[in-house]
Design a protein around this nucleic acid. Structure first.
Lengths: 251, 251
DNA sequence: AATTGCGTTTCTATATTTGAAACAAGGAGG
DNA sequence: CCTCCTTGTTTCAAATATAGAAACGCAATT
């Protein structure tokens, strides 16, 4: 079952995900509840391969460039960004709001690419950050198209915190919402995570009809409302479907 | 010494780096000379964490999106791209050739970002690909500023193949060239890897004066020659120094 | 000088990994 | 339809790497 490998990757993911930039052995061992010696040895492995760097002066570890390098290679090989970027740029010109690309990671979504809105007033969810699935259009879009079994698994484990007065906090409501999303073809986040911000998203599906990612437009509810939501939603859904077609079969 | 962790990461890196897109257990075990059972189990670990995906139909493994996600997070956290991109864009406008950002990985350099030249005629080294250090301006720029000990280690292990008539194939010549590069402040690849392509690069140094990456301009020797090389080189070196200053101390 | 806190090393019982071999499942060919 | 390959996957005993408390060395602090 390769425990060490698992835990080493877990440690790497923890360090990459955490907002913190530098870590000491003791700190990490406490925070992850692991033996100090073990953490020390895993850090050495990661540092040896340049996933992390070891500052000899302070003894602390910070990020190396290997993950970025691998990410770049994966992006190049899967062609995800290559295929999606042109559509995102089209959406940017047509909708004139911030356009995002995100993937799902357990019960969160993680932004992996974005094109800034030309407007002065814009959302500031940076690439790399994550948001709970149930209160983001991107998350709901992917949830809605997930095979029932996997959907249930995620829904069952959700802790539904209210970030704003509009956040959906009842599981039944969420299930109804997911059904509506499938019917419409796109998801809308109506100020469910940040007050004043509306977001519209549609999923990118692979060859097995499973969502691999989602694209969205996000902006102030002052601009994104009424008819604009419907228009943008249909546009995003159409492009997402085209991307799905190209991505799902090109592999 | 955490062998399993090491080998699992090695396997991941192999899969990300290889031009191939799909792999079977047997194939990988043969290619890496490892026991089939072991490879099988490592692949399971990587697939479980979404570094890879397992196609249940064919039994083969292909890339997942976790590496891309981690890469994005590292890019966001280190701020490397955030700091470097604006300079790359300036260089693009001023030099009007393809601008690259690369890191060093053992005896190769790996492209991690690029801005295409506005010209029709342009180089086509895609992001994610790698080139031997000794015949690339980016590689030579980083080599030149590496601490002597590390430099020796890499130079000692080089196999110097001639890709073009201009490729440096003698170690002594390369050492002299590295000295010249340090004196000038920038490196030039004079058709040493691809005939007809010239490349000019300077290193980005961290707080310990060690190169973490390098930026370059690349284009047809027809346009990049004579005075243009000197001008571009000085510009690139100046910007690289500014980036070093900002990156080296912001950490 | 003593103490605290850190990264690192040591050491042995223990649990995990190892890998040949067996198994199951599918496809190719006769 | 059956056989023979070739897959991916599981089993199991032996070999080996890991775990983790404890000790160590070294700073910085008191």
């Amino acid at each position: 079952m390769l425990k060490v490998a698992h835990r080493t990757l877990e440690l790497l993911e923890y360090i990459c995900t955490s907002p913190q930039k530098e870590f000491s052995v003791t700190e990490l061992s406490q925070r992850l509840g692991l033996n100090k010696t073990k953490v020390y040895r895993m850090l050495r492995v990661l540092a040896e391969r340049d996933y992390l760097r070891h500052d000899e002066k302070t003894g602390r570890y910070h990020l190396g460039l290997k993950p970025l390098e691998l990410g770049t290679q994966v992006a190049a090989k899967t062609g995800l960004l290559e295929v999606v970027s042109p559509y995102m740029e089209k959406l940017s010109r047509e909708i004139k709001e911030t356009i995002n690309l995100a993937v799902m990671r357990s019960n969160k979504i993680v932004y992996i690419h974005k094109i800034e809105s030309p407007h002065f007033l814009r959302t500031d969810l940076r690439v790399g950050t994550s948001v709970p699935v149930y209160c983001s259009a991107l998350g709901k879009a992917m949830l809605a198209w997930l095979p029932e079994q996997e959907q249930e698994k995620i829904l069952g484990a959700l802790e539904m915190v209210a970030y704003t007065p509009h956040t959906i906090t009842c599981l039944e409501d969420l299930k109804l919402e997911l059904k509506r999303i499938r019917d419409k073809g796109y998801a809308v986040d109506n100020e469910e995570y940040i007050s004043g911000i509306t977001c519209i998203a549609a999923p990118i599906l692979d060859g097995h009809k499973k969502p691999v990612a989602a694209i969205s437009a996000a902006g102030p509810s002052l601009r994104l409302n009424g008819e604009k939501i419907t228009q943008s939603g249909e546009l995003i859904a159409r492009y997402a479907a085209e991307i799905s077609f190209r991505y799902g079969y090109s592999k």
